[in-house]
């Protein structure tokens, strides 16, 4: 697909993505920037599926646009009112003057041109197309899962995934550190709108079901722990917005749920060393079961981690661990 001449659809999609990014970056008001960013997220999800990457499209929609979008909208709408920089237009973005615009645009064009030639050079002469595709597809029989991307994530390059889950855990630690000693003041759970409570009671179980389906689909088609974690985070955030979320006394439960994913990964890593002589080694016989077990706990930890980050942003109801 890579080297046939570019089609109309690709040109339109590329231009739409660049236009969306330009709007998001140069919007005059914060809310406008965030809305454009959400539109850009949707366009990117379409772009990834167009480039033959369904896993990435699913992750972009669930995490890149879903959770990140929720974080941005919450930051813009619930921020302290005075925080919005005073300007003629409420929420005007300072520094968006004409002179800055021209020099910024010039710099962007130059940088873009430079990067463009670099990328074209890399993809051009003598590049090694396909990279490790053959290696991965050749070893799928002992990988424990049928879907190549899940096999790479949780078996061939599982060390990267372990470090990445630690990055998410570190994010939760940093976020809860800024809350300081005093527990966030829990606003008395105001009577939530009846429709919201009803909607949450109906949708939360459905969302958890979708999260479970996405998780277990990951072994033979696009899906997996990260996308399922994001859907789970959506369910938990919805429950919290409707006032049904975990209360302050669930702090310890949340803390355990956060740690259980990476902890299981470390236990499997040590088990691999003891059994096979190398860290993270998975015996082909046990690989399938171990991967699904670790992936389930990972999805739980990722879902809770994303929710705690969201709640800490709004000094949410729950007392983050």
């Amino acid at each position: 697909m890579g080297d046939d001449p570019v089609g109309l659809l690709d040109v339109l999609l590329g231009l739409a993505v660049v236009a969306g990014a330009a709007t998001a970056l140069t919007a005059r008001r914060r809310m406008g920037a965030v809305v454009s960013f959400l539109v850009l997220g949707v366009l990117l999800a379409v772009l990834w599926s167009r480039l033959g990457a369904p896993d990435v499209a699913l992750a972009e929609a669930a995490i890149g646009t879903g959770v990140t979008g929720a974080l941005f909208v919450d930051a813009v709408t619930r921020g302290p009112p005075a925080a919005r920089p005073p300007g003629a237009v409420p929420g005007a973005v300072p520094g968006a003057g004409a002179r800055a615009g021209v020099s910024g645009a010039l710099a962007a064009v130059l940088l873009g041109a430079g990067l463009g030639t670099a990328f074209a050079g890399a993809a051009g002469a003598g590049a090694a197309p396909g990279g490790l595709t053959g290696q991965v597809l050749g070893r799928m029989d002992v990988a424990g899962v049928e879907h190549p991307v899940s096999a790479v994530l949780l078996n061939f390059r599982s060390y990267d995934t372990l470090l990445e889950v630690v990055v998410l855990f570190v994010a939760v630690l940093s976020v809860t550190a800024t809350l300081g000693e005093e527990r966030p003041r829990h606003p008395a759970p105001a009577a939530r709108a009846a429709t919201l409570v009803w909607f949450c009671r109906v949708m939360a179980p459905v969302l958890v079901l979708v999260a479970a389906w996405v998780l277990f689909a990951g072994s033979d088609r696009p899906g997996g722990a990260f996308q399922s974690g994001a859907v789970l985070a959506g369910a938990l955030i919805l429950m919290d917005t409707a006032g049904l979320g975990p209360g302050p006394d669930h702090g310890r439960l949340l803390r355990v749920a956060l740690v259980v994913g990476p902890a299981a990964f470390l236990v499997v890593a040590a088990g691999g060393l003891v059994a096979e002589g190398e860290w993270l080694a998975l015996d082909p016989v046990w690989a399938g079961g171990l991967i699904v077990a670790v992936e389930t706990l990972l999805a739980l930890s990722i879902g809770v981690a994303l929710t705690v980050v969201f709640l800490a942003l709004g000094r949410g109801r729950v007392s983050p661990p």
């Binding site: 490790l132 290696q135 991965v136 070893r139 078996n155 061939f156 390059r157 599982s158 060390y159 990267d160 691999g272 096979e276 002589g277 190398e278 860290w279 993270l280 080694a281 998975l282």
Partner: peptide, 13 residues
């Protein structure tokens, strides 16, 4: 050197 997860380079880490 140490091959993680039992897969030698270039596939594994």
């Amino acid at each position: 050197g140490h091959d993680l997860a039992g897969w030698g380079p270039p596939l594994g880490i």
